[in-house]
């Protein structure tokens, strides 16, 4: 058993490891989550919250139920500001009544669109962004869709209006579809 035998054995082990776990994470979660985090930040820049919602927090808080995404987003958005507030990414499991409301809550692809959390916060001034199909139909505000390795989005304008959040026309113009209103891109 010399060093050559050890190196050969290691190579064999690596070759037979389940290819999915590490390989899928690297190809799928990166860079999509980074782009998603950037999109969330851009949504924050081109949206306007009621003054009362902004006054409550020292930070601009982006909350998520996905720990992996939270880590990537935190790494991506560190040092960024929305207005004069630094961006903070917060991992949540459930949003209790007493907790300070975040500004954006991101629901991952695994989250069910009819999540009780979404229902509960739909009337609060919180921008909800999700990936799950039917997200906007169940009260979500922006749904992200990956088409040909590019991230698109659909906006539920009625939900944002109900929450008192205004999304800039520049963003509305970029949306694939604006529900609850005439499609902006269609007009152009």
């Amino acid at each position: 058993m010399g060093p050559r035998f050890f190196l050969f054995s290691l190579l064999i082990i690596l070759l037979f490891l389940p290819a999915g776990a590490l390989g899928r994470d690297l190809s799928y979660r990166f860079p999509t989550d980074q782009v998603t985090a950037a999109y969330l930040y851009n949504f924050a820049l081109f949206s306007h919250w009621p003054k009362s919602a902004l006054d409550q927090r020292e930070f601009f808080v982006i909350a998520t139920l996905d720990k992996d995404f939270a880590d990537i987003a935190a790494a991506t958005l560190t040092g960024r500001y929305v207005g004069d507030r630094p961006v903070k990414v917060q991992l949540i499991h459930n949003l209790d009544e007493g907790d300070a409301a975040p500004h954006i809550v991101f629901f991952g692809e695994d989250e069910h669109p009819s999540s009780p959390l979404l229902k509960r916060i739909s009337r609060l001034p919180i921008l909800t962004v999700g990936r799950a199909p039917g997200f906007t139909a169940t009260g979500g505000m922006i749904r992200l869709v990956t088409v040909e390795r590019r991230l698109h989005f659909v906006i539920n304008l009625a939900a944002t209006k109900k929450a008192g959040i205004t999304i800039s026309s520049e963003v509305l113009r970029l949306a694939d579809e604006v529900e609850g209103n005439v499609p902006v891109r269609g007009i152009e």
Binding site: N42, E170, R173
Partner: peptide, 14 residues
């Protein structure tokens, strides 16, 4: 000003 969102969201078509 109107191109800011297109640049931010990397939307060259827009």
């Amino acid at each position: 000003f109107n191109s800011r969102a297109a640049v931010a969201f990397n939307d060259a078509d827009a």
